[in-house]
Computed example of a mutant assay.
Amino acid sequence: MTMNVTLNNGVEMPALGFGVFQTPPETTAASVAEALRVGYRLIDTAASYFNEREVGEGIRRADLDRSEVFVETKIWISDYGYDETLHSFDKSAGKLGVDYIDLLLLHQPLPTGFERTVGAFKALETLLGDGRVRAIGISNFMPDLLDRLLQQTTEVPAVNQVEVHPFFTQPEVQKADADHGVLTQAWSPMGGITSYRGDSATSTFNNAVIGEIAKAHGKTPAQVMLRWHLQEGRSAIPKSVNPDRIAANFDVFDFELSTDQLAAIDALDTGVRGGPDPAVITEESFHRDIPEA
Rank of each mutant, 00 (worst) to 15 (best):
Y40P: 03
T2Q: 15
R41H: 01
S188V: 00
M13K: 05
S92Y: 10
T153E: 06
P291T: 10
A186C: 10
R37K: 14
E57K: 15
R41N: 02
K215H: 14
A120I: 07
L128A: 14
H229R: 12
G211W: 03
G58W: 12
S203N: 07
E212T: 11
D63W: 04
S48W: 04
D177S: 09
Q170V: 12
V252E: 12
K215V: 01
Y100F: 14
A123I: 01
T45L: 01
I237Q: 00
G10H: 13
F89V: 04
A123S: 05
H107S: 05
E57Q: 15
R227G: 09
A30N: 13
D289W: 00
A47P: 05
N249Q: 13
E26G: 00
A201W: 00
N9H: 14
E52Y: 10
L36A: 09
V173M: 13
M3A: 12
L268V: 06
A29L: 13
I246K: 05
K95T: 11
F21Y: 14
L105A: 02
A247Y: 04
I77T: 03
L183A: 13
L149T: 07
S67F: 01
M13D: 06
A186H: 03
K215C: 02
A123D: 08
A178W: 04
P14C: 11
D179Q: 13
T112P: 08
K219V: 14
I75T: 06
G97N: 06
F286L: 11
S48C: 08
S78D: 04
F250D: 08
F114T: 08
L230S: 05
A123G: 08
S195Q: 12
P25W: 10
E72P: 01
P291A: 04
V156T: 09
G191R: 00
A35E: 12
N160A: 00
D179G: 04
D144Q: 10
P14H: 05
N160E: 09
Q261N: 02
T45P: 00
T28F: 07
S67G: 09
A247F: 07
L230V: 14
E72K: 06
T154V: 08
V20I: 04
T154D: 11
R116N: 15
M142H: 15
D289P: 01
L149I: 05
A222W: 02
D90H: 10
R134H: 12
A267K: 15
A208V: 04
T126V: 11
F141Q: 03
S285C: 07
P109C: 11
T154N: 10
N207A: 04
A30I: 10
V98D: 08
F21E: 02
L103F: 06
P243L: 03
G39H: 07
G233P: 03
M190E: 00
L96V: 08
A62I: 02
V272Q: 08
G129D: 09
H229P: 09
E52I: 06
E115T: 05
M3S: 12
L16V: 12
P243S: 05
G211V: 10
I265R: 05
T270F: 03
P278M: 08
